[in-house]
Amino acid sequence: MRPGSRRLAAWALLVAAAVWLVPANLLPIMTFESIGRAQSGTIADGVVRLVHSGMPVLALVVFTASLLIPILKILVLAVVYWRTPAHPSPRTAIRAYRLVYWIGRWSMLDVFVVALLAGLMRFGKLATASPEPGITAFALAVVLTMLSAHVFSTSQLWEPDHGNGANP
């Protein structure tokens, strides 16, 4: 794959990830049903419930891993892909890229937790948990971000005309 087409593919995957992140945060990710009472919620709803349940540390972990990091990953990759010759330096951009690439392997943890809960909470009529469309959108956003980082070639960061994408 030519460097210009790699850059374009990385951008396309990153934009798609950003688009899927919107429904991932607006749609419910899971429905809990206990003794006939169903309760659905988004990621943000889960954070609020954890705080109200007296688990602020766990709420902070969920907020960071599920809301903050996916957004920061997209922003960091956008800065790396859009890098101009002046800022950030290629070394700084590569460090940021490697950090995002490394974090990518942990990004599916939320999806695995929902799948695990949905599989374990099968107690007939007493309690169940089922995944909702938000978790699918979240998984797509995570996978697309990982693919974007994988497609991008860091050698492009050393090209003098890299930056605004005007010369792919």
Rank of each mutant, 00 (worst) to 15 (best):
A127P: 08
A141R: 02
Q39R: 14
P160G: 06
I29R: 00
A141F: 01
A18V: 09
A44E: 02
T128M: 11
S53P: 05
T64W: 05
E33H: 08
A127N: 09
P133T: 06
I69Y: 03
S130R: 13
L14C: 02
V114T: 02
T84A: 11
G54S: 08
G134P: 04
G36Q: 07
P133S: 05
A59K: 03
H52Q: 11
W106R: 14
N25L: 04
G54P: 05
P133W: 09
V113M: 05
I43R: 02
A17E: 01
G36D: 06
A78D: 10
L60V: 11
A24H: 01
L27G: 00
T31W: 03
P28G: 09
H162N: 08
A129N: 04
A18N: 02
L140I: 06
M108V: 11
V151D: 00
V111G: 00
G124F: 07
F123K: 12
T64I: 14
Q39S: 12
V62Y: 02
I71Q: 09
V79P: 06
P131E: 13
P88K: 08
A93H: 01
D110K: 06
T145S: 13
T154S: 11
G4K: 10
F32P: 01
A65L: 11
S130M: 07
A115P: 12
V80N: 00
V113F: 15
R98S: 10
A78P: 04
A44R: 01
I71W: 08
L77W: 10
L109K: 11
V47Q: 01
W106V: 11
K73N: 13
W11E: 08
L109V: 14
V22T: 14
L117F: 15
F152P: 01
V48S: 07
A24L: 05
